[in-house]
Simulated assay, not measured.
Amino acid sequence: MEIDLIVGSMLGAAEYVADEVEQQLLDQHQVTQHLDADLAELKTDGSHVWLICTSTHGAGDFPDNIEPFMSQLQQERPDLSQLKYGVIALGSSQYDSFCQAGRDADQLLQDLGATRIGERLEIDAVEEPVPEDVALEWLPQWREQLEAQ
């Protein structure tokens, strides 16, 4: 199974998490990390799985590097009924918009027909100073559910 790791990061935390997750996945999967994702370059036919790893910026906004991709999905509204995906959302519970970008990405993909594998992971910077550790604890269960597909 090939995995497209789509990263949204402003200050680098989501990139660090994505790097650690990628290293763990490489033992069994081909992984391509996308810091500037473009829908035209991604497979939506079920041959690839998308794993979104994004922080939340501002008042619940997508980070600058993933915002064009999310806008592209909203405008083009592709049929993603063959696509399976996962979401790792980073945020701070000090804000009302906690993990909003990850939640919005999750909802958008579902609205376009995609099927989420496992539960969305929400990492709270207040509770978890090392978000990579939380992601690596979550990853084995996500992989099991991926393999069961």
Results as ranks from 00 to 15, higher is better:
residue 56 T to I: 08
residue 56 T to S: 06
residue 56 T to R: 07
residue 56 T to A: 12
residue 57 H to A: 08
residue 57 H to E: 07
residue 57 H to R: 05
residue 57 H to F: 09
residue 58 G to P: 15
residue 58 G to S: 10
residue 58 G to Q: 06
residue 59 A to W: 14
residue 59 A to M: 14
residue 60 G to Q: 09
residue 60 G to S: 07
residue 61 D to H: 11
residue 61 D to Y: 12
residue 61 D to M: 12
residue 61 D to S: 13
residue 62 F to L: 14
residue 62 F to M: 15
residue 62 F to N: 05
residue 62 F to R: 02
residue 63 P to Q: 09
residue 63 P to W: 06
residue 63 P to H: 10
residue 63 P to Y: 12
residue 63 P to L: 14
residue 63 P to G: 10
residue 64 D to I: 04
residue 64 D to W: 14
residue 64 D to G: 11
residue 64 D to H: 15
residue 65 N to V: 03
residue 65 N to A: 06
residue 65 N to F: 10
residue 65 N to M: 08
residue 66 I to W: 09
residue 66 I to G: 11
residue 67 E to R: 14
residue 67 E to M: 09
residue 67 E to T: 03
residue 67 E to N: 15
residue 68 P to S: 13
residue 68 P to C: 11
residue 69 F to H: 02
residue 69 F to W: 11
residue 69 F to V: 14
residue 70 M to A: 00
residue 70 M to P: 00
residue 71 S to R: 07
residue 71 S to E: 04
residue 71 S to T: 03
residue 72 Q to E: 12
residue 73 L to A: 12
residue 73 L to Y: 11
residue 74 Q to L: 11
residue 74 Q to I: 04
residue 75 Q to T: 12
residue 75 Q to M: 03
residue 76 E to G: 01
residue 76 E to M: 06
residue 76 E to A: 10
residue 77 R to D: 04
residue 77 R to F: 02
residue 78 P to I: 15
residue 78 P to N: 05
residue 79 D to I: 12
residue 79 D to E: 07
residue 79 D to V: 14
residue 79 D to C: 08
residue 80 L to C: 11
residue 80 L to S: 09
residue 80 L to Q: 08
residue 81 S to R: 04
residue 81 S to T: 05
residue 81 S to M: 03
residue 81 S to C: 04
residue 82 Q to V: 05
residue 82 Q to P: 03
residue 82 Q to W: 09
residue 82 Q to E: 13
residue 83 L to H: 03
residue 83 L to Q: 06
residue 84 K to L: 15
residue 84 K to M: 13
residue 85 Y to R: 07
residue 85 Y to M: 09
residue 85 Y to K: 04
residue 85 Y to C: 04
residue 86 G to K: 09
residue 86 G to A: 06
residue 86 G to N: 04
residue 86 G to S: 10
residue 87 V to A: 03
residue 87 V to W: 14
residue 87 V to G: 10
residue 87 V to I: 10
residue 88 I to C: 14
residue 88 I to S: 07
residue 88 I to N: 15
residue 88 I to L: 15
residue 88 I to M: 13
residue 88 I to V: 15
residue 89 A to W: 08
residue 90 L to G: 03
residue 91 G to N: 02
residue 91 G to K: 00
residue 92 S to F: 15
residue 93 S to H: 07
residue 93 S to C: 01
residue 93 S to Q: 14
residue 93 S to E: 06
residue 94 Q to R: 07
residue 94 Q to H: 01
residue 94 Q to M: 05
residue 94 Q to P: 01
residue 94 Q to N: 03
residue 95 Y to W: 06
residue 95 Y to C: 04
residue 96 D to Q: 12
residue 96 D to M: 12
residue 96 D to A: 14
residue 96 D to I: 13
residue 97 S to H: 09
residue 97 S to G: 01
residue 98 F to S: 00
residue 98 F to V: 01
residue 98 F to D: 01
residue 99 C to D: 01
residue 99 C to W: 02
residue 100 Q to I: 02
residue 100 Q to F: 10
residue 100 Q to S: 12
residue 101 A to I: 07
residue 101 A to D: 00
residue 101 A to E: 00
residue 101 A to F: 03
